[in-house]
């Protein structure tokens, strides 16, 4: 099926872009989600507003407290920029997205706004307790990730609003990072389940842990009870076994073409032990 040309505009400034959005335009950045959805007939926007090159959305600013990442920066750009070196978890996640072309096209803002349960960047943004900066007709506002992601493919973005940037606070100290995604095809894998973690280790034990699971719930999941139960545990899978069912129980997976809910639950539990093994193996 041919994609009939949809009316599309390339505004020269943020104000111009916001005007188009107020009239009902739909933001387009890399197009790797939206153009696919249009082709499949899942989306029928009347006007595409290309925001991928707006300078306001392409900033990368290192401040005293954290890093501000413009929504229109691509995964590939973020992977090589020195400013993201302080966020190994972000890089670990972005490296697994799609193929080189998808990474060169797809943006952080697009991944965030698509809000797929399998959106990989969401795992890193959730672990880093990122804040989403929005700009719209009534000015700017900032939302923490859990408030921004309200459900599967649903965000708190209002009509006329754009994601301008994402703010990543520098984590305290030097947590160890872990990310593993289980999927069905090596390339272009859409996760069946994924687990990311930041773990602060002291004297061979977990001092503090943040975990985030992808693809096993309507949106990215922070299993707080498991995070708390990990405190003080040695870095050994045997010492974590009792938490596997706790983690599996925290998930609310769906069954779909890629995997059954039961399988997803199991994989999530297994990933917890993979994390323990990785920590035990050393940095």
């Amino acid at each position: 099926m041919r994609l009939r040309p949809i009316p599309a505009v390339k505004p020269r400034s943020l104000e111009e872009a916001l005007r188009y959005l107020e009239e009902g335009g739909r933001p387009l950045a890399g197009g790797t989600d939206l153009l696919v959805a249009i082709r499949k007939g899942q989306e029928k926007p009347e006007l595409l507003v290309y925001v991928g090159e707006l300078p306001e959305l392409r900033i990368l600013r290192e401040g005293p407290e954290g890093l501000e990442i413009g929504a229109a920066l691509t995964h590939a750009e973020l992977l090589v920029h020195p400013a993201t070196e302080r966020f190994p978890i972000l890089r670990a996640v972005l490296r697994t997205i799609g193929s080189p072309a998808i990474r060169a096209m797809g943006t952080l803002g697009g991944n965030l706004v698509t809000a797929s349960p399998a959106g990989d960047s969401l795992v890193a943004l959730s672990l880093l307790e990122a804040r989403v900066r929005l700009v719209g007709p009534r000015g700017e506002r900032e939302l923490p990730i859990p408030e921004f992601l309200v459900g599967p493919r649903k965000t708190a973005l209002e009509r006329g609003e754009l994601v301008r940037s994402v703010f990543l606070p520098y984590p305290e100290g030097h947590p160890r990072s872990f990310f593993r995604k289980v999927g069905r095809r090596r390339a272009l894998i859409i996760a069946v389940a994924s687990l990311g973690a930041l773990v602060w280790v002291r004297d061979g034990r977990v001092e503090r842990a943040r975990l985030a699971l992808g693809s096993v719930a309507p949106t990215v999941l922070r299993p707080r009870d498991v995070e708390e139960a990990l405190v003080g545990r040695p870095l050994a899978p045997e010492a974590w076994e009792d938490l596997v069912p706790v983690l599996s129980a925290a998930t609310q997976p769906i069954s779909d073409l890629r995997a059954t809910a039961e399988y997803r639950r199991k994989v999530a539990g297994r990933l917890l032990l993979a994390l323990a093994e990785a920590l035990q193996a050393g940095p």
């Binding site: 599309a8 505009v9 390339k10 387009l28 197009g31 790797t32 153009l35 696919v36 595409l48 290309y50 991928g52 590939a76 193929s99 080189p100 072309a101 998808i102 060169a104 096209m105």
Partner: peptide, 21 residues
């Protein structure tokens, strides 16, 4: 990937790229 081209030296899928991009 059959439609891959380079745009400013980076790989891009031309089936998911609009003219204005």
């Amino acid at each position: 990937g059959a439609c891959t081209v380079l745009v400013d030296g980076k790989p891009r899928l031309s089936c998911l790229t609009l003219a204005l991009q």
